[in-house]
Design a binder for these strands. Structure first.
Lengths: 228, 228
DNA sequence: CCTGTGATGACAGTTCAGTGACAGTTTGAT
DNA sequence: ATCAAACTGTCACTGAACTGTCATCACAGG
């Protein structure tokens, strides 16, 4: 699930350039040159970020921005304003209206990409690698939450730490001793077999009927989290 | 309780200019010209945003940025990089390192103010006017008033501060120590379990029969305010 | 068919958060 | 100044969740 960006720009050449660059970076891109249509498109399917030209048809960019900010559903979508108007006044007005960034033409596409990325990093931690992802399993260390396929799961403290330990080291076989050291701490004198038990508890917690088991048992070696 | 900004800038004149401007806008400002000291100051008391010069003594700005991003406690503080280096490469590097914005000298103080404001607006939780919003709970810091689903609730002083602390940091697990530091102040020698009691009082105050409890207990970690 | 290793269910002990009570303190009204 | 109501921090207790271990079962590999 790639982050999606809506490009609102009526200069067709520039619009294509941006779309192409964004696609190359792995974003899902939609675009329009019309302010009115932009609002409809956002309402239809909210993008993760918007690049918005100041001077567009129908509705001026700054008005689009205002509209988006007014509606609770769309108020938090990051917006980069794009414009030829380099005057300080305009920039400040854009930012005060709710734009998150303001880039003046001519601009470097790569810098714009970096700015979009920075914005997404902030507004969608899930996409920015703040969260650990493994297949359909998602672990958010900040909120101490684990989801599979979007559904929230309940894990005890030890299972949580264990899952995190695995997800930070995917596709590697981890010995019971390594797991003990990593999860319980170097100086624990816990029986190695105890790891087995917690593996079972972890499996029970994350596997719903039908789901493949992401934890592979490696006989005489340990366990590994991998795509089977 | 004004938002606080840390200015890291070794050009004293510029540093003063920024500090003055920020103070005039109502920010609490601290400043230093030294990268090493900046890190200490942040750890001591985390500011709401940081203005960071690229070229400073001891530790280069970009390194300070990296350090801050590495530590979970400080990873989410908005950073504006400030620099004389206008090259595209530098800008991109700054943004990729974790800076949220990148402003090139010479710059307009007012624009910088607007950018800071935009960043804070984003890093803050949902606002409705000046009120904090979380689901159907609404907290007005100025009038010290809390509503749920429109209905006014009564909270004691401590519960109010606690709720605010949570609503300013939604979707994060907060340890009892963090809560003590944030609500009671850094230098209180209050028993951690006291937090439990106030959590209970807060819950009792905000939850009417049928409402979902917005405060989630995270065993062995703390509490978190989030959906579900 | 053995053997060794992992899986499983049960269990007792431990930890941890929720709860009601309470005494001391603060606050605000009179 | 006085008093009642509201608020605060602590405690003891309880029940639920969690943990580590063990005995036993299942099974893959030789």
């Amino acid at each position: 699930m790639n982050p999606s960006v809506l490009v609102v720009e009526d200069d067709v050449a520039l619009c294509d350039l941006l779309s192409w660059n964004l696609s190359a970076e792995g974003y899902d891109v939609r675009s329009t040159g019309d302010g009115e249509e932009a609002l409809v498109m956002v309402r239809e399917q909210a993008p993760d970020a918007i690049i918005l030209d100041w001077m567009i048809e129908q509705v001026p960019g700054i008005e689009v921005c205002r509209q988006l900010r007014k509606d609770k559903e769309t108020a938090r979508i990051p917006i980069v304003m794009l414009t030829a108007r380099g005057e300080e006044e305009d920039r400040i007005r854009g930012l005060k209206t709710g734009a998150d960034d303001y880039v003046t033409k001519p601009f470097s596409p790569r810098e714009l990409m970096a700015r979009i990325e920075a914005l997404l990093r902030r507004s969608r931690p899930v996409l920015a690698g703040d969260n650990l992802l493994f297949g359909d399993i998602e672990l958010d260390p900040t909120s101490h939450r684990v989801r599979r396929d979007g559904e929230s799961l309940h894990l005890g403290p030890t299972e949580f730490k264990m899952l995190r330990y695995f997800m930070e080291r995917p596709n590697r076989v981890l010995s019971r001793q390594q797991i003990l050291d990593g999860v319980w701490g170097m100086d624990s004198d816990i029986d190695e077999r105890t790891v087995d038990v917690h593996i079972r508890r972890l499996r029970k917690a994350i596997n719903r009927a039908g789901d493949p088991d992401p934890i592979r048992t490696v006989r005489a070696a340990g366990y590994s989290m991998d795509a089977n």
